[in-house]
């Protein structure tokens, strides 16, 4: 179920995810392949899967342009 590679994507500095294989991804770590159906995501700033903007958290949406987005460069 590894289908999306976000390694080339500027994912929000506050996004975390735990995929079925236990890899803690995001933040300062490079984004690896994610299994989009089975990965648990959370925002560090809200400590849950609901972002500060009340929308849900996932790698494809926690990117530049979202109102609560923080670039990894500025975290």
């Amino acid at each position: 179920m590894k289908e999306e590679n976000h390694a080339d994507q500027n994912v929000c500095a506050y996004l975390r995810a735990k995929n079925p294989f236990g890899t803690l991804e995001g933040g300062g770590n490079p984004w690896l392949h994610l299994d989009t159906a089975n990965t648990i995501c959370w925002c560090v700033k809200s400590q849950g899967p609901i972002g500060p903007d009340a929308r849900y958290v996932e790698p494809a949406r926690c990117v530049s342009g979202r109102s609560c987005y923080t670039s990894p460069e500025f975290s």
């Binding site: 159906a37 995501c41 849900y56």
Partner: peptide, 24 residues
């Protein structure tokens, strides 16, 4: 309110089968 309610990849990977499709 969270994600991650899929059924994994065991049907995709465990047995030899040339044709596979999933929607989760």
């Amino acid at each position: 309110v969270g994600l991650g309610a899929g059924v994994g990849s065991i049907a995709q990977n465990m047995y030899e089968c040339p044709n596979f499709a999933t929607e989760q």
